[in-house]
Design a binder for these strands. Structure first.
Lengths: 155, 155
DNA sequence: AGTAGCAATGAGAATCATTCCCAACTAAGG
DNA sequence: CCTTAGTTGGGAATGATTCTCATTGCTACT
């Protein structure tokens, strides 16, 4: 994994420094997309400017990718080439995002959909995003008093 | 449509004021999710504080829903009950989001996936989100000089 | 019509994430 | 060593979103 990361950075003429290595370790260890805030919490004496700068560098090198969850804050995870392919399950209450395993049938349907749309809209389709939105077990328990989560389903 | 909106606001003991009506008209007329900036542009003398406040009110009433695109800025559209069911196609360059028609096959696969995940993770799945990410025709033309769009595909 | 009560409005301040800037630092090559 | 270019940390700047508050406008009731 670190080799891959170093290699990809090298392509961009960038170094695989200790800060970057730490970020990769943090993301790899989490097993789910992390927000900058979580990344900073996991690396106490890491200046936020360095966190942003290096996350950006890693994104540009293709080592990390940005995930959009239910809130509007960026969350980051290792690129699929380094971590394996998967989908996301987001909690509409607390915003946490979990990784979930992909299904072959769903993959096929999505690929097909992408092809059709590319044809019809003239887009060059680069990828897609499928997230399930729900309420995590913890939030289900901790809140009987509630009615209207910020609506958010598309399909 | 306005009846629906008024009704839903009434449930929350809120009024369907002219500002709110204007917002609904704007969103209905756009046919795609709009950012606050776009909404303000379409309603020249609308104070931004009112735009945010009322969009929030409409979201809480279930008239509008928030869509997260490729950038981290909120975009808003009418709830599907008022506008019909659809997916999104986002341009990774300019961030614009278009509506696209759903496909029956994809719908079935997604519903199935949601069921499986709900079982396995203990989540109460409320909905899902499927967005295709690509490059719109305009951006394809306007930029031959480019290599690495902020990576963003999940599946 | 008159008025109390409460939601709604507009302007700007406050907050929060993210980006930008710059001076000091470090690694790699000659 | 000595140079060069990428890197770092700290803080300022930016931008979007939320909050505050005094004022205004409905609604219902009289």
């Amino acid at each position: 994994m670190h080799e891959q990361a170093a290699l990809r950075l090298a392509v961009q003429e960038q170094r695989y420094t200790s800060v970057r290595r730490a970020l990769v370790d943090t993301l790899a260890g989490a097993g789910r997309p992390l927000s900058i805030r979580e990344i900073l919490a996991a690396n106490e004496d890491l200046p936020q400017s360095s966190a942003y700068r290096n996350i950006t560098a890693l994104i540009e090198a293709g080592v990390v990718r940005r995930v959009t969850g239910v809130d509007d804050h960026g969350r980051f995870e290792l690129a699929e080439e380094l971590s394996g392919h998967h989908h996301h399950l987001a909690c509409g209450r607390c915003g946490t995002v979990e990784d979930i395993a992909p299904s072959a049938r769903l993959e096929r349907a999505m690929t097909e959909a992408a092809r059709v749309v590319a044809d019809e809209h003239g887009y060059e389709v680069l990828g897609h995003q499928f997230d399930l939105v729900g309420t995590c077990p913890a939030c289900q328990r901790s809140s009987t008093e509630w009615t209207m989560p910020a609506t958010r389903s598309s399909t």
